[in-house]
Design a protein around this nucleic acid. Structure first.
Lengths: 137, 137
DNA sequence: GACGGATGCGTGGATATACACATATTAAAG
DNA sequence: CTTTAATATGTGTATATCCACGCATCCGTC
């Protein structure tokens, strides 16, 4: 059976399932799984560009642009012009965004631990490297 | 860094990346990765219900309903009423759907081989089981 | 310093995704 | 046989996702 050997289907299926689990975990703080990932990736010293953020998240550049909108509207981040290059936008967490992140981290921890617990320690490491190979191969 | 230990982000990232690769592979036959998976799952003796199909694909039931529309419009599948239960719909591949599937399989094989080749044999097995655990844990 | 290519980003369109809610049908309880 | 619960599915809304295309800005070369 092809379906059972299809890496794409397997990963998509796992992706949707784990996405729903993390969505559940973040629901009480008003985030979903990729919004948390997005905010988390912004929590860094030097602000990312749109392209940089898209690369971190492994998603299309234009998707990232559109995904920033609702978070910007909620005042969780700001999109600023770069000082040196007028083409470049810098995405910066606001204080509200940082605060929400602090609130969300324990929920992330719980969800991530729960999923990790269903895997062997050794498998977890291999899984990480395999996923990395697939994402950037 | 939380992002680097986040299973959810890792899987989402890999999922988007592998989705794009399979989309590329199927572009010449006018399918995308999940449409192929959907048609593939319909290629079976006894027709699936909407719920059954959704479960196979690990996606929301209502998403499945809506995803069927474009494929139905293209005449690749039919949505029939069940003989015994008026609530139930049975999704059946048409001849056109089956023919397109035959055409698409070599492209699937190539794409799947290419991704598999970037992984160790042993890792591949573990990856499959880990993904299964995540999808159905 | 003009200009062709490269780079960073946005928009429009088609469709994907999931949740809340609604409907129709069947099964179960009394 | 009526009432109630369970099941299978559809709709509306909000947003996600990618592609094709376009615009603005920068850079290297002449």
């Amino acid at each position: 059976m092809i379906a059972s050997r299809c890496l794409c289907l397997r990963i998509q299926r796992a992706s949707r399932a784990i996405g729903r689990r993390f969505d559940d975990a973040f629901r009480s703080v008003g985030l979903n799984n990729w919004q948390f990932s997005l905010l988390m990736n912004l929590s860094r010293p030097s602000p990312l560009t749109v392209n940089g953020l898209a690369e971190q998240l492994g998603m299309d550049r234009t998707t990232t642009t559109k995904n920033l909108r609702p978070l910007e509207r909620r005042g969780l981040l700001e999109i600023r012009l770069d000082e040196h290059d007028a083409r470049v936008r810098r995405i910066v967490l606001t204080d509200a965004g940082r605060a929400l992140l602090v609130e969300a981290v324990p929920h992330w921890q719980a969800a991530n631990d729960a999923v990790s617990a269903s895997l062997e320690e050794a498998d977890l490491e291999r899984l990480h490297s395999a996923l990395e190979a697939i994402a950037y191969g």
